[in-house]
Amino acid sequence: MSTNDLVSCVSLVLGAFFFLAGTMGMLRFPDVYTRLHALTKADNLGLGLLVFGLALQAESWLAVAKLFLVWGLVMLASTTCCHLVAQAAWQAGISPWSRRDGQ
């Protein structure tokens, strides 16, 4: 196995791990504001690592460009959606979770 493949493997596995973290966050965090982290942080990092790992295997520069374009678009979209969802939640009067409520 070449270094290229090794780096690619590590990156893919790490990416999968962050997706797992995102799903766990989605399932276990207490309210909508905290769950936004799963969408915007963990999953985008996971996707970035996957894209990096796949780019090392890609057959052409066009494919690499497409991979990174996809990542950029997803980041743009989830940032916007995160903002919109948070704003809508705030305006609808959902108050953020705090430790006292949780107990």
Partner: peptide, 18 residues
């Protein structure tokens, strides 16, 4: 409904050409 603020507007401006 939620008004479309600057974030949504600029997002649409960025994404539509793509």
């Amino acid at each position: 409904a939620l008004p479309s603020g600057p974030v949504l507007t600029s997002f649409v401006r960025l994404i539509l050409p793509v």
